[in-house]
Design a protein around this nucleic acid. Structure first.
Length: 874
RNA sequence: GCCCCCGUGGCGGAAUUGGUAGACGCGCCUGACUCAAAAUCAGGUUUCCUCACGGAAGUGUUGGUUCGAGUCCGACCGGGGGCACCA
């Protein structure tokens, strides 16, 4: 793609390279996008999820930031004081992997990547306030994070706990529950292992109910994300029930203090159908019994071997080990049942113990069948017969009527739950309770390139906080990556420190924080990024927060978005803010996809390595060998179906890339990147430049007073232009960028189509062109700025207000009304707007097309919807 | 297994939320310009019947509600996503 330098006199072609650089420089020099607090103006905070500095931006970034930039520029034009910052999610494992592979220090690698990506982002012409740039790996950033952690610790929101945790064997670190997907590490895809470790946790479960309830108020969040979070939190109502344990003789187990076994159930209505109790292999009672029972020890070890991968779990047989115990039924005096240790009972959920009701639970049914335990029906369908109803072959898991259950008989499941909980509470053998699936957030990571956890381990004093005056705890830079594992742990001096309490020899915590902590408050930091004495200036933060529009990928629906909601609440609880929620509006954009190409030898090919022949056949460009075209998938390095944004911006310009990103595909859906689509977008930029350049010569000067009257053609153009203002505005507000683009295409054709005959026509053409240019400002800012200047304006378009639609031009005086016969279209009618029903009916019945269809029959009924349709029923 | 979303031309997608289905773009076809091609411009493009005028069918399948259904309801088929031994 060649471009000739443009001349002001007769610009044949739009020279995007020169023009884009020119306006980027102009915006930067004038600090056009620097945000300053101004309480007299309404603020608007637009934020796109900040990138990990991998080294190069990818098309997903281009799409994400283009969308955010449209909103930011649009809101600016609408008079909002816009904050639109950018920064770097700079801690993380790829830096350590690079250190191991390429012998570069993670810090150096990260900052070099940041510089490279910043340059790329700048070439996109985004309206970002770069003066607020932050990097989470900067000690001036993470020191505040350490301070907040200490505050949370003091407030009881951070604690250490020994537990079975998920260990990623590839990254050599533990992972939070949210970071294990189908039993595999979210980054590495390696099956996680179970390890028992003492780790730092943040008490997200403290806010479980609040995090769930407040989802309802996030009405500018996608329903889908709210649903996913609700499912993740997983609230269920039920009861805790206490079962007296005895040994086989009925006596209390000798010398043991297990008095009663606590179980959680969501189906207390089926208590009378209980036929066994089962404990998790990790349950303390099991552990204690195992001490003297080699068989049990063996069983527990076997259970541990089974992985947590989805496939393994699904196929794993339900196995149990009968314990030398009996459990007394809390509601049926004299009834006892066997107690098992069972592999399917999770220690992390509920109390780590269940009662089995095989008649009404698939899993319990399988277990009972295997071990020959009784299967008693206690719920049956409303129309079934209690005497003959059987669940021997299959459990009945639906709603129904309670049977064989003493005082519960005849009740519905719902009523029985209420009544049985009342009874359990009266008798002191149980109580109604709520259980959540959500677990606390495990934040320790056995890695170097992260924020150090500000804690010190002292043999005498235990775990003590690093005194605030010693913050930040900075990462040492002299570390080695010659071996796997945590370089902090093997650093010769860093971890040795005096105990802040007793002054004795102690050692630092060598784990670092999960990097999701870094991104849980960066949006707050952007409100006052240089503030030194606290994470943020309260006044600035209060002015700018919450984020009015957050934009990012749906893959963070749970992880980042839930953590951020938690962190905001934790900050609130330690009186740092009074806010509950960080993100007022959320938009999740779709992925950028591309076809995949495979050579005959099975290797993947880059799109630029293939060639499409005239017949549609696809071959390898180098040797014309056949290429197999695969379906369109998310762009990924592994399948090589990537297009480099740098290349596109170089060949076509940022505006073309932005325009294409916004055209056609609705922003929440996946976008298919095609060469044809890009060239189409590029052609439109050129066409627009041509239309405008040709018109400029004949237009009246900017600011020429409005003529008193217009020709019909001019009025039609004015109507089209003003309707486009209203339409594009509404579309941008609703994130319907593809529709806004379609409207702009239409307006461009209409403008081009008006052959100006008189001065009023020319005035209308200038008006329409100016409107057009202003409406494209948020989407293709460079070209718009260039045309704005060409139209004779001295000010920056970026500083100009959004055009205002004249109401009178938005409504037509005549409307087209469809005429139907029995619901089928027969013709159309031009009627005055808001014409009376009678008139519409009369006109419709006079329509020849209708008379022909009616064929002499008399209409039975005529339905008139004003300004829409007339339906004649015959 | 449970929960959620989506099925519209050759393709990406519109359809004021129950009121003219296919806006706009891509692709394709025809024409203009050109010695020619590219680029550009003009016109056409759901399918079927008809030279045409017109007409019929049509939004995954199927049944229903309604004067009227892409839109609402039921069943089914297909695609995608989330959760998953959660008691």
């Amino acid at each position: 793609m060649s471009s000739t330098p443009s001349t002001p006199v007769a610009p044949a072609r739009y020279n995007f390279r020169e023009t884009e650089a020119k306006w980027q420089k102009a915006w930067e020099e004038r600090q056009t996008f620097h945000a300053r607090m101004d309480k007299a103006r309404p603020k608007y905070y637009v934020l796109e999820m900040f990138p990990y500095p991998s080294g190069r931006i990818h098309m997903g970034h281009v799409r994400n930031y283009t969308q955010g930039d449209v909103i930011a520029r649009y809101k600016r034009a609408r008079g909002f004081n816009v904050l639109h910052p950018m920064g770097w999610d700079a801690f993380g494992l790829p830096a350590e992997n690079a250190a191991m592979e390429k012998k570069v220090h993670p810090k150096k690698w990260t900052y070099e990547n940041i510089a490279a990506m910043k340059k790329q982002l700048k070439s996109m012409g985004l309206s970002l306030d770069w003066s607020r740039e932050i990097a989470t790996c900067d000690p001036t950033y993470y020191r505040h994070q350490q301070k907040m952690f200490l505050d949370f610790w003091k407030a009881g929101l951070a604690y250490r706990k020994e537990a079975w945790v998920n260990w990623d064997p590839v990254d050599n670190t533990v992972l939070a529950n949210e970071q294990v997907i189908e039993g595999k590490g979210w980054r590495t895809g390696a099956p996680v292992e179970r390890r028992k470790l003492t780790q730092w946790n943040l008490k997200i479960t403290h806010f479980a109910d609040e995090l769930l309830e407040r989802l309802d108020t996030l009405d500018r969040w996608p329903e889908k994300v709210r649903l996913m979070q609700a499912n993740w939190i997983g609230k269920s109502r039920g009861a805790r029930v206490f079962w007296q344990l005895t040994d086989a003789s009925g006596a209390a187990p000798s010398g043991k203090d297990w008095g009663k076994l606590e179980i959680f159930t969501t189906r207390p209505d089926t208590l009378y159908g209980a036929s066994f109790a089962a404990l998790s292999p990790e349950h303390p009672i099991v552990a204690e019994l195992a001490e003297t029972d080699p068989g049990l020890q063996h069983f527990v070890a076997e259970c541990r071997k089974t992985g947590t991968a989805a496939a393994e779990v699904e196929t794993a047989e339900k196995i149990g080990y009968k314990l030398p115990l009996l459990a007394k039924h809390p509601l049926m005096p004299g009834k006892t049942m066997p107690v098992y240790a069972a592999n399917f009972v999770l220690m992390e959920y509920g109390t780590g113990a269940i009662f089995g009701c095989p008649g009404h639970d698939e899993r319990d049914h399988e277990f009972a069948t295997k071990y020959g335990l009784p299967i008693i029906p206690v719920v049956m369908p409303e129309d079934a017969d209690a005497k003959s109803f059987s669940v021997a072959n299959e459990p009945f898991v639906e709603d129904g009527v309670i049977i064989n259950s003493d005082f519960l008989d005849g009740l519905t499941v719902e009523d029985a739950k209420i009544k049985v909980i009342e009874r359990l509470e009266e008798m002191g053998v149980g109580k109604g309770t709520t259980q959540y699936r959500l677990r606390d957030w495990l934040v320790s990571r056995q890695r170097y390139w992260g924020c150090p956890i500000p804690a010190i381990h002292c043999e005498k004093c235990g775990v003590v906080p690093v005194p605030e005056k010693d913050l930040p705890v900075e990462l040492p830079e002299d570390v080695t990556f010659d071996r796997p594992g945590n370089p902090l742990d093997r650093h010769p001096t860093w971890k040795h420190v005096a105990c802040p309490t007793c002054g004795g020899a102690a050692r630092r915590e060598t784990d670092t924080f999960d990097t999701f902590i870094d991104s849980s408050w960066y949006f707050d930091r952007f409100t006052s990024p240089k503030f030194a004495t606290a994470p943020f200036d309260r006044e600035e933060n209060h002015y700018w927060m919450p984020v009015d529009q957050y934009i990012g990928g749906v893959e963070h629906a749970i992880l980042h978005l839930l953590y951020s909601r938690f962190w905001t609440r934790a900050m609130r609880d330690v009186q740092m803010t009074s806010r509950d929620e960080p993100f007022d509006g959320l938009f999740t954009q779709g992925m950028v996809c591309h076809e995949t190409y495979r050579a005959a030898d099975g290797s993947w090919l880059l799109p630029e390595e293939v060639e499409r022949l005239d017949g549609g056949k696809v071959v390898r460009a180098s040797d014309k060998s056949p290429v197999e075209v695969g379906r369109s998938e998310k762009m990924s390095k592994s399948k090589k179906n990537v297009v480099d944004p740098d290349q596109i911006i170089h060949d076509y310009g940022a505006d073309t890339a932005r325009w294409f990103m916004l055209s056609d595909s609705p922003p929440e859906r996946d976008l298919e990147w095609t060469e044809a689509g890009v060239t189409g977008a590029w052609r439109f930029q050129q066409r627009l430049f041509r239309i405008a350049s040709e018109a400029v010569a004949e237009l009246p000067a900017a600011g020429t007073p409005k003529p008193a009257s217009f020709s019909d053609a001019a009025t039609a153009l004015r109507r089209a232009a003003h309707k486009t203002i209203a339409g594009v505005s509404a579309d941008i507000e609703a994130f319907h960028f593809n529709k806004a683009v379609a409207r702009l295409y239409e307006l461009a054709s209409t403008i081009d189509g008006l052959k100006s005959k008189d001065a009023a026509d020319k005035w209308a053409k200038r008006e329409a062109l100016e409107i057009f240019v202003r409406l494209t400002g948020p989407m293709t800012p460079h070209l718009a700025e260039e045309l704005w200047q060409a139209l004779g304006h001295k000010s920056l378009l970026a500083d100009s207000p959004w055009p205002l639609a004249e109401d009178a031009l938005l409504v037509d005086d005549t409307v087209t009304v469809a005429v139907q016969l029995n619901g089928k279209l027969r013709g159309t009618l031009q009627l005055a707007k808001d014409a009376p029903k009678e008139e519409a009916e009369k006109a419709a019945l006079a329509l020849p097309e209708l008379a022909r269809g009616l064929d002499g029959k008399t209409p039975k009924r005529v339905i008139v919807v004003p300004n829409r349709i007339v339906n004649v029923v015959a």
